[in-house]
Structures are given as structure tokens and as C-alpha cells.
């Protein structure tokens, strides 16, 4: 990581209070292009709260989120997505009644050029945009091996494939940073291994930055280049996986003193 490079995603002294409770404070992170970062911590440490601040769901009470050096203060979730931050959810949130391919197409919506008039009159522009969208969606689905399920309702997919679809949908927003909230939660070892492969594929293919929250230590230790550990909203460690694994404060936070 060259020092002169601007980080894709950067936070400066990010913090949030819920009433009198300081849920997260002084959270600083710099993620560079192509980097895979891990964010871990015991239950209730504030990991998902950080994610919610990074995606505009919560407005931080202090500090800023910068994307490519541009601050995103006061923006709404969909504007964060438009700027280039996409996420998946801890408990899968797909559009269950819609088909698999439609789930991906929804994420293209913000980039589609045609307007209501084009849609009403079915102009050439409409057909062209729709066809391009279908092609792009199929391409994304094929990366995740979901192309055979394109027309099935999303809710009918097994758990592991739903996860993959959620990642595919996040990728469809054409983001620069991907935030994965416990992608391996509830998966068996085979599914986790598949997911690992998936994450590596998209990283190599799209060259994006990924921030990963995970409980599955083997996954985090295997794929992440650097790991950040928080507890009670405070950063207690930040470093290479080996360093984290032997850090006494981290061990204390996880196992108790």
C-alpha cells in the first residue's frame, strides 16, 4: 500500500451515540483498491453499527466517511450506493417474490438511462437498455453459478445460493467498495469453502476493495490481508492475521480475562 495513494474508503474519527450510549467511537480505517479487510469483534462490539454508518443507514454523530477522498456526510443510503459503496446483510435480504435475475436487475436501476416516456412507448432506447441489463445480469449470475436458476423466485433458492445472489446483487450496483456482513453465517463448511472461492474470484476479477465482518475465524484468517478488531465500539487491534491471532487484548476480548 503506497503511502501516496488515496484510499478508496476512509473513515476519520467515526463515532455514533445512541442517547447516552457510545456505540462506536474513534473508528479509523483506510481501505485501498483490491484490498480485503476483515472486521471482527465479539457479539455486540459494534461491527454492524460500523457497517450501517458506512452505508448511510445511521448518520454518524461524529467523524466522516470518505470515498475516494470525497466526504459523504448527510447522504442517504441510496446515495451511498450511487457513490460506490454496496453491502450485503447479516440476515439475507433478497426480494423473495421476484425472480433471481430480477433481483440483480433491480440493482441496475439507478444506472438505467431510459425514462417513463421511453418505457411507456417502448422505444428503441428502452429495448436496448433492457437487453443490455439482461446480458449483464446473466454474466454476473454465471460468475456465481446461478444462471440455471435465473427465472426461479429468489426465495426458492437454498441458503448458500441466496447468499451468493445477494453478493451478485451488490456487485451489480457497480460499486468500488463491497461490505460483506457475516457472509458465512449459518453455512456448513462446504458452503463456506465455496464462498471463500467466490470472494477470491470477485476480488481478482473486479479489483474492488472488500470489508468483511465475520465470526468464522478460519475464513477471516484465510482471506483477509489485514484485520481490525473492535470491542465495545473501540478499536483494540489492527494488523496482519498472525499478529491478531497472538494479540493478548484480542484473546482477552474473545475469551474473557
Amino acid at each position: 500500500m503506497a503511502e501516496n495513494k488515496v484510499p478508496v474508503l476512509e473513515t476519520k474519527k467515526l463515532g455514533i451515540n445512541f442517547g447516552g450510549l457510545k456505540a462506536v467511537s474513534d473508528f479509523n480505517i483506510q481501505i485501498y483498491e483490491g484490498e480485503l479487510r476483515g472486521l471482527i469483534g465479539p457479539n455486540g462490539a459494534g461491527k454492524t453499527t460500523v457497517f450501517n454508518m458506512l452505508t448511510g443507514v445511521y448518520e454518524p454523530t461524529e467523524g466522516t466517511v470518505l470515498l475516494n477522498g470525497v466526504p459523504l456526510n448527510g447522504k442517504k443510503t441510496h446515495q451511498f450506493v450511487a457513490a460506490g459503496i454496496a453491502r450485503t446483510f447479516q440476515n439475507i435480504r433478497l426480494f423473495g417474490q421476484m425472480s433471481v435475475i430480477e433481483n440483480v436487475k433491480v440493482a441496475f436501476t439507478k444506472d438505467v438511462k431510459y425514462n417513463l416516456l421511453d418505457a411507456s412507448l417502448r422505444t428503441k432506447k428502452f429495448w436496448k437498455a433492457e437487453r443490455e441489463m439482461t446480458d449483464k445480469a446473466m454474466e454476473l449470475l454465471s460468475i456465481f453459478g446461478l444462471e440455471d436458476a435465473a427465472d426461479l423466485p429468489a426465495s426458492s433458492l437454498p441458503y448458500g445460493r441466496q447468499r451468493k445472489l445477494e453478493i451478485a446483487r451488490a456487485l451489480a450496483t457497480d460499486m468500488k467498495v463491497l461490505l460483506l456482513d457475516e457472509p458465512a453465517a449459518g453455512m456448513n463448511p462446504t458452503e463456506t469453502a465455496e464462498l471463500l472461492e467466490c470472494i477470491n474470484t470477485i476480488r481478482n476479477r473486479f479489483g474492488i476493495a472488500i470489508l468483511l465482518i465475520e465470526h468464522d475465524m478460519s475464513l477471516v484468517m484465510n482471506v483477509c490481508e489485514r484485520i481490525k478488531v473492535i470491542d465495545y465500539g473501540i478499536t483494540i487491534a489492527d494488523g496482519l492475521p498472525e499478529e491478531i491471532a497472538s494479540n493478548p487484548r484480542v484473546i482477552a476480548a474473545y475469551l474473557g480475562e
Binding site: V57, A82, A86, F89, L94, F95, Q97, T109, R169, A170
Partner: peptide
């Protein structure tokens, strides 16, 4: 289906 997921997919 899901407002939060919709806005997380870039829909206003």
C-alpha cells in the same frame, strides 16, 4: 419486498 434492501441496491 424489502425497503432496506431496495435502498441498499441504490433505489431512491
Amino acid at each position: 419486498d424489502d425497503e432496506i434492501a431496495a435502498s441498499a441496491s441504490g433505489i431512491n
